[in-house]
Structures are given as C-alpha cells and as structure tokens.
Design a protein around this nucleic acid. Structure first.
Length: 783
DNA sequence: CAGTGAGCGAGCTTCCGCTTGACTT
C-alpha cells in the first residue's frame, strides 16, 4: 500500500526528489509525454471541431501500465510535471489516461529541485489549469496540421519522403537566405593604414587610420603625403571601463559555447550533458532559464570566497532575454558547486568544467579596465592615426571564464600603450597600407543557427538538436568543411622615405563545420516560400504564440483559433496541389556547342544533374550529376559541359578497354566488365591509365582474399571477408557472424544456425527497420 | 559487401515537444 504517488517527467529527477520526501512518498517518472496524436492519417477529426485522437505510443505502454497500477493503490497522486505548457498537458494526459479520481489527485509545481522548494510545493497544491492544457493542444494540433498537410504536397510536387514543418522549414530558410547573400556578395577591396611610430622614450606606438581608403591610387597618394608630413599627438583620452560576466548556461548558450570552445556538435553536447545529468552532476540540461536557486547562489558564494576572496564576489540574479521562454527549470549548473571537477570520460569532464566556470563566473565581480585612446594628426591630411589600448586593472570574473564570440576576425588583444604627451611630435618608423577585402556575412554553424532560432522564438530547448539533425537527414543541408581559395593582395610600405609595392597571396573563404544548403533544400525552400509565405514567415511562430497565450488566459477557445488558421491554410494546400507545377529547380544554361541542343540543370531522380537535350528528342538525352560543392543555381554552361567529359577511355590493359566514369556510387573505373571505385584522392577527370591499373590490381588482390571458406555441399553459402569483417553470404543475403567466433572454423551447420537466428530477429521490430533504412540512405550520399 | 542510372508496378514517407533507451550498420 502506497500513501503518496508523485509523478514527474524524468527518472533522474524522480530519484532526487524521492530522497527529499521520505518513505511515505513513492516518486515515479512518466518519461515525458505518455500520449500523442494517432500517427495514422491526421489524428485529428477536422469535421468534429478538430477533436484530437490521442493514443499511447508503443514505447509508452509499459510506463502507463505501471503508473496505472501504482495510482490505483495510492491514497493520493501528485502530478508534479513541469510548470509550463507541455508539463501541464502531461499532467492532464496522466489524469485522463490513468483515470485518476480528482478527489485523490493534486497538481504541484516547482522550478528548482531543492528540499525547501518541493516541500513548499506539497503544501500548495492546485488543480490542473485547463486553459494552459488547451493552449498546448492548440500547439500540438497546429504543428500536426502544418507538418502533415505540407509534407505530402512536397512528395507530389518535389520528391517523396520530404518534410516540412513550422520549425524545420524556417531553419532551412535561414540557411538558404544566408547562402544566397554569400553567393551574391561582391567583395570590395580597400586599404588599411597602420603606422609604427617612435616615441620620445624610444618605444614603439602602433596606430591605425580608421577610414578605409578605397582605391590603390588614393592609398599611394596618402602614403606620398606621409613622406613629408609631421605627426603630432593631438589627444590622449583615458577612461575606465568594465566587463560583466555572462548569465549562467541555458541549453542554447551551452550549445554555442561547447561548440566554440570544445568543438562539440549540438547533438554531442546534449548527449554528454544528459550523462552528467543522469549521474547527478548537473541540473537539467533542457532549459531556457538563466535563473539560479538561492541555494545555488549560496554555494557559489562560498566557493568564490574560499578560492578567490571577497574582492571577487558579486552575486547577481539574471533575467531572461529570449522570447517565449517558459522557465520551468533552473539554469544549467553543477548540482554541487563545491565540486570543481568530476569523474567521467574526458568529454564529460571538459563539459562539466565549462559549466562550473560559467556558473562561478556569473557570481563574480566585474572586470575593471582602463581604456586609452591616442590620436595622432597628420599635418598635411585630414585623416588621423588612432591607437587603442586596454589595460586590465582588476580581472574579476575573467579569472575563471571568458565568453567566446562567433566573429571570425578576432580583434587583436590590446595591451598597454606607451606614454605620450599631447603635442608630442612623433617620427614614423614605417607606415603600411595593406589591401583588405569586405567580407560576406558568416555562414551558420549548428550552434549559431540555434542561437538565431532562439532569438526568433522558434523551437524549444528539447528540439534544437533534433531539428538540426532532421534538416541534415532530409538532405536539405550538409555540415562540412570547404577549402578556401588563394587571393592576391597588395602591400604598400613606406620606410626610409621609400615606398615599396609588393603582391602577396593569402587563403580566404575556408569554412570549417559550417551548414550549407543543398539544391534540394533550396528548391523546397523556394517552393514553400512561393506557396506558403505565411508559414515560412519568420514571425509566424511569434504570432501563433501570442494566440496560444490568449488561449492560456482563457480569452479564446482553442478550436476556434485552429479553425481560423486551418480554413484558409487548407484551401491554400488544395489550390497548390491543383495549380502549381512540379518544382525541380530547372535552369536553362545555354546550348551545347557540339550538338546545338539545350543544356539544362535540375533535380533528377538521383539528385542534382545537368542534361543535354530533352526526353522528347529522337536521341536519348545525356545526363551527368553535379559534383560536390556545385549548385544548380550557380553552375555555368562551361562547368556543365565539363561534367559530360565522362565516360573517358584511358587506353587498354590486357587487351581490354579501361574506362573511367561517375556512377550512382561515385567515380569508378571499368575494365573487363568489372567495376572498381576510385579513391577519394583520385579525380575522374584527370586520372591516367597507370593509376587505373594500380586500382584494378588492388581490387583483384582484395577479391582473392575475400573468400574465407566455401562448402561443396552448399555452393550458395559462402564465408566472405568484407568491410566490416567476416560475414556469411547466402542466396544474395548477408549475415553477421557473432563477435568472438573464428570465421575459418565455422561448420556448415553453424552457418545455418546463424542464418536461422538472424532471419528471426530481422522481423522483430519496426523501429529497427527504419534505422537500417536511414543508415543506408546516409551511406549512399557519402559515396 | 554489392551495385554503376535518369520517374510503370505498391505502399510508404511527414510534424513538434516531452522524455530515455536499444540498436549497431
């Protein structure tokens, strides 16, 4: 017999709370939502006032069964899910699904997991807030309607299996628009002047001209003037400055800093944080709150006093800046701030260290600075040289933590400037004018995209990482490195009354771990923005959020709000299906000089391609796939024609032709009707016969080693050596050999057992099938 | 490992937000 059953969302949380509450309370977890809309069709009865059809998903059946049993036995059930829209809905679903007696059920909330907070919550129960639940139902139904009506339009008009949604489609749009800004950016060059001066005290003073000098001629002219000019210090300004620490981590800021400082992807960060959370080392990692509990501030205070002394202490309460924050939890912080380090893997330690430092720094003193600006006049020109210096007077929080930025050209660290007096004359040692270039806005990283989405109020802490994965899995976007290109720039140097001009080279535009939209992402984005402008609007989420708030405040009925949205939306879907044509991003590039036929680029059944001629021609059109880094919207006729230079005949080997081409699985060499894939470093347009023969021989050698064992009585069954070690091939199907078995010693009987066992487990679960599928499409794209 | 083409077949794909496993290909 249980006195009290408390239900929270997370098992780790349940464990902690149970300790606070004592033996009269049993604390269990619902593992998030326990019900969802039925997956078949819409799961919504449109004609019946948008009545949702809720079901318990398969993976939640056991949880529900368990909770139901305990709830029956308990005298009182306490629904302690989070204090936000989703949490309220979870409590409501539990109420319904577990068939709880309202007289025996209480709803409680707390947003920090401390003994006091929980005991206080137990003393102040309330009932379920139906309005807030309705706001969640509206959110859920709207997302389902948008996702499940838009995606099928894409299947028909662009390509099967694509997806669209309120969050992911906007994420892709941000990337596509940024990419176009980059592609259309016209870089301009200018000259940046830097002077090195001697002061009276024989030290060097470095100063810049802030104005960008536009042309080489103007730069030369100004340098000429400098030859004969007098340089005089016209102003020295010293003023104090300060820097304040950043707020403690939320999900989004943790992802950003872990990306910048530790190089983790957002998914990695979340997986590592989850481990730290489960082992009780940090507080909950999916949060939009910057708030710390009074207890946490207290422990931080003690740590700072012990480690750094009173001068370094300055406790603060931070307020959230982000739109739509629901603040059901605390900020992400160490559970026990006294623990400066923790046990665990290297990555866990590093992430914990980051969280510890950020938390401690947030309660430390401002850093005090002294900023110095020295202005130097040029006697025969209006431009001025300016030197900026910064001296740290007191380090404060900088002792433990410095926040990083996304800016690519990090400003040089400014140090102490030499002492000069106003009116002092300076001689130049040298003055240089370096050609610089304006730079396009930076492409997004995973983390900077999350930051942008959060600013727009789109997505939630629990969905940032999955959204980033989805848009990559759908092929809308790739995360990759791209090499830069060489660029020449000129350098004018004035020294010893002589001006020298030199040309130098540098690499520019190299990208690391950036998100690039693919052609399919661009085509889908254009199709959606053309036809469903409202939903792709950056303010769509913000405006529906306002309406959800109205529902939460009891000012609107939820189905009324949905109806107002759905009627015109659904009509738009039907009109688009009827009137818009297929969208494959087709562009006409020009005419093929050899045949005079038109050359076009578009998305084909196997990805972006170029084509000579059309399918109505007598002769079949020729096709070629675009290469990595090429885009439908930027490819030129010349680049397209280059792609048709395959297949190439390299010559003959052993009296048979050797041909190189690109197929479905990447570049290959064909010889004697056998195919050999090219290696990464081989270029199909440049490869020569010698190298091709080398590859053919390599493949032959591998094939020789391939067969481990065959059985005379069963020729269809073979033990082979593959990419992932030995395996059994039988009737065109492959079977894994269990770990630790010696493949060479397997008997026919054992092989049959393995085949039997595998085909049974193959049928096991549906989830397994889908993962296999995903993995396959992934490896296809890579090859 | 196998496979190297350019829309037949039948049926499936898909959303966002809560939460953690059970899977390795």
């Amino acid at each position: 017999m249980i006195e009290n059953l408390v239900i929270v969302e997370s098992p780790a949380k349940a464990k902690t709370i149970e300790k606070f509450l004592g033996k009269d309370f049993q604390v269990k977890s619902s593992f998030g939502h326990i019900r969802d809309l039925a997956k078949k069709n819409l799961g919504i009865e449109i004609e019946n006032d948008y009545q949702p059809k809720y079901i318990v998903p398969d993976d939640k059946k056991a949880v529900v069964k368990d909770l139901k049993k305990l709830a029956k036995e308990a005298k009182l059930v306490w629904l302690a899910s989070d204090e936000d829209r989703e949490g309220e809905a979870i409590a409501w679903h539990l109420m319904k699904e577990l068939d709880l007696d309202p007289k025996k059920t209480k709803r409680i909330v707390f947003h920090e997991i401390t003994k006091e907070a929980i005991q206080k919550a137990i003393k102040n129960p309330r009932s379920i807030d139906e309005n807030l639940v309705n706001a969640q139902q509206a959110r859920r139904v709207l997302d389902r309607l948008v996702g499940f009506e838009l995606s099928p339009v894409l299947w028909k008009k662009v390509k099967p299996s694509l997806s669209a949604g309120r969050v992911q489609s906007v994420a892709v749009k941000l990337l596509v628009e940024r990419e176009r800004e980059v592609l259309n950016f016209k870089s301009e060059s200018f000259f940046k002047f830097t002077g090195f001066f001697n002061t009276k005290e024989k030290s060097e003073l470095k100063a810049d001209i802030a104005k960008k000098i536009k042309s080489p001629d103007a730069a030369k002219e100004l340098l000429e003037k400098c030859k004969t000019a007098d340089f005089k210090v016209s102003n020295v300004v010293k003023k104090p400055g300060k820097k304040s620490p950043a707020a403690p981590f939320t999900t989004s800021t943790l992802q950003q800093e872990a990306s910048r400082k530790l190089g983790f992807s957002v998914a990695q960060t979340m997986a590592i944080a989850q481990k730290l959370y489960e082992s009780g080392k940090i507080t909950y990692m999916r949060t939009d709150s910057v708030n710390l509990s009074t207890m946490a501030i207290g422990s931080a205070k003690n740590v700072i006093l012990n480690e750094f002394g009173e001068k370094y202490l300055q406790t603060r309460n931070f307020k959230t800046k982000s739109k739509g924050a629901q603040e059901a939890h605390e900020a992400i912080r160490p559970t026990f701030i006294e623990n400066q380090t923790v046990s665990g893997t290297d990555r866990e330690k590093r992430l914990y260290d980051l969280i510890w430092k950020r938390t401690i720094a947030s309660q430390m003193s401002d850093a005090q600075l002294e900023k110095t600006t020295i202005t130097i006049d040029i006697s025969n020109d209006e431009n001025k040289f300016v030197a900026n210096g910064e001296v740290l007077k007191f380090d404060g929080f900088l002792k433990v933590y410095i926040e990083s930025t996304d800016e690519e050209n990090e400003e040089e660290t400014k140090g102490l400037l030499p002492a000069v007096k106003v009116g002092e004359k300076l001689d130049y040692k040298s003055i240089q004018a370096v050609e610089r270039f304006t730079h396009y806005p930076p492409r997004y990283t995973e983390a900077s995209l999350v930051k942008k989405l959060e600013e727009l109020g789109i997505g939630r802490p629990s969905t940032y990482a999955p959204t980033i994965s989805t848009i990559q899995n759908r092929g809308y976007v790739v995360k990759e490195d791209r090499p830069g290109r060489e660029r020449k720039y000129s350098l004018l140097l004035l020294k010893g009354n002589q001006i020298n001009e030199t040309t130098k080279t540098e690499t520019t535009g190299a990208e690391k771990n950036k998100l690039f939209p693919n052609d399919i992402g661009m085509v889908v984005n254009d199709f959606l923005t053309d036809n469903f402008e409202d939903i792709l609007n950056y303010n769509f989420t913000a405006s529906v959020e306002e309406e959800f708030d109205q529902i939460a405040n009891g000012k609107t009925g939820w189905s009324k709000m949905i109806d107002k949205f759905y009627k015109p939306f659904h009509k738009n879907v039907e009109d688009t299906l009827e009137t818009s044509s297929r969208s494959v991003g087709e562009r006409v590039l020009g005419d093929d000089p050899k045949t005079g036929k038109p050359v076009t680029a578009k998305i084909g059944p196997y990805g972006p391609m170029v084509q000579i001629g059309s399918k109505d021609d007598e002769e079949k059109p020729r096709f070629a796939s675009l290469q990595r880094g090429q885009l439908l919207e930027t490819i030129t006729l010349e680049e397209a024609l280059e792609l048709f230079k395959l297949p190439r005949e390299l010559g003959t080997y052993e009296d048979k032709k050797v041909v190189v081409s690109i197929g479905r699985f990447g570049p290959y060499v064909r010889h004697d009707s056998k195919f050999v894939s090219l290696k990464k470093e081989d270029n199909p347009y440049k490869i020569e016969l010698d190298r091709a023969i080398e590859l053919i021989e390599e493949k032959r050698e591998k094939d020789r080693k391939k067969t481990i064992k065959v059985f005379d009585e069963e020729p269809e069954l073979q033990i082979l050596n593959g990419r992932w070690g030995p395996y059994i091939s039988y009737k065109k199907k492959n079977f894994r050999i269990p770990k630790g078995t010696d493949a060479e010693k397997l008997t026919l009987e054992q092989c049959r057992d393995i085949i039997e066992g595998n085909s049974k487990s193959e049928k096991k679960t549906k989830a397994k099938k889908t993962t296999t599928k995903k993995a396959k499409t992934k490896s296809k794209k890579k090859s």
